[in-house]
């Protein structure tokens, strides 16, 4: 699992690395420290790099809203349509502990489907909300522990981001955000170039190679 991008929001404006999802409002920076959204459905995708289809995104709440209905809350988005020509992405939402505080949904061409829902999962300010989209496995995690998981194939790829779905009491704030892939650590691979140790001859001619034969060794470069 590799982190491919992050943002601590320690500046005045969200800037060019972020785009706004079609048909929604943009997230913005408050107090030169946190990302926030205000009163309306808001989603921004991190568009500065090309993202792998299998991806995760996570953010740390510095203000957590209270969902007023199922499907409301704030969190991260995955597989946002990078062209922003259609309102298409997965929502991984959380809200302050209580009714309907955890939700996974999808927007496909602007049509909203709620895939999974749970209540009373203990969310508090300071928690890390994480969304994962790996193949058809769509997950919501709280502080690294899975809360909900759905199976869906509607959206194959796109950008990760931030998302807010009204109606809530209070607006969300996140103090940081990160996203990445599920690639495993590099496995050893066959070398395509380097040096090969060669021996010219057994200097002592005794059928054994030892320190006395070292003068007959040399390195040969290959590619």
């Amino acid at each position: 699992m590799t982190q491919l991008a992050s943002d601590d929001f320690e500046r005045a404006a969200l800037g060019a690395n972020w785009s706004t999802i079609s048909g929604e409002f943009a997230w913005f920076i408050t107090g030169s420290s946190d990302a926030t959204a205000n009163g309306s459905d808001s989603s921004s995708n991190y568009s500065a790099i090309d993202w792998p289809d299998d991806q995760w995104a996570e953010a740390t709440f510095s203000a957590i809203p209270i969902p007023a209905s199922a499907g409301a809350g704030a969190g991260v988005a995955t597989r946002c349509d990078p062209t922003n020509s259609a309102r298409t992405y997965y929502r991984h939402l959380a809200g302050a502990n209580g009714a309907n505080d955890s939700c996974i949904g999808k927007l496909v061409g602007g049509s909203y489907t709620q895939l999974a829902l749970a209540s009373n999962q203990g969310w508090v300010n300071g928690d890390v909300v994480r969304g994962e989209a790996q193949g058809t496995d769509i997950r919501l995690l709280r502080n690294g522990t899975q809360v909900l998981s759905a199976s869906d194939s509607a959206i194959a790829g796109g950008d990760p981001g931030l998302t807010f779905s009204t109606s809530t009491t209070g607006d969300p704030q996140f103090e940081d955000w990160a996203a990445g892939d599920f690639a495993t650590a590099n496995a050893p691979t066959k070398r395509s170039h380097g040096f090969k140790l060669q021996q010219m001859a057994d200097a002592e001619d005794d059928g054994k190679f030892n320190e006395l034969d070292v003068r007959n060794w040399w390195c040969e470069a290959f590619a």
Binding site: D41, T88, K106, L107, V108, G110, L117, A150, S151, S153
Partner: peptide, 26 residues
């Protein structure tokens, strides 16, 4: 499929639903 009336299963308790979509989101 709207914000106030999303496609969803007829349930208000904890669940995970398998709801495949058409290309237009329905």
């Amino acid at each position: 499929g709207t914000k106030g009336d999303p496609y969803r299963v007829k349930l208000s308790i904890a669940h995970s639903a398998l709801i495949p979509s058409n290309p237009d989101g329905t």
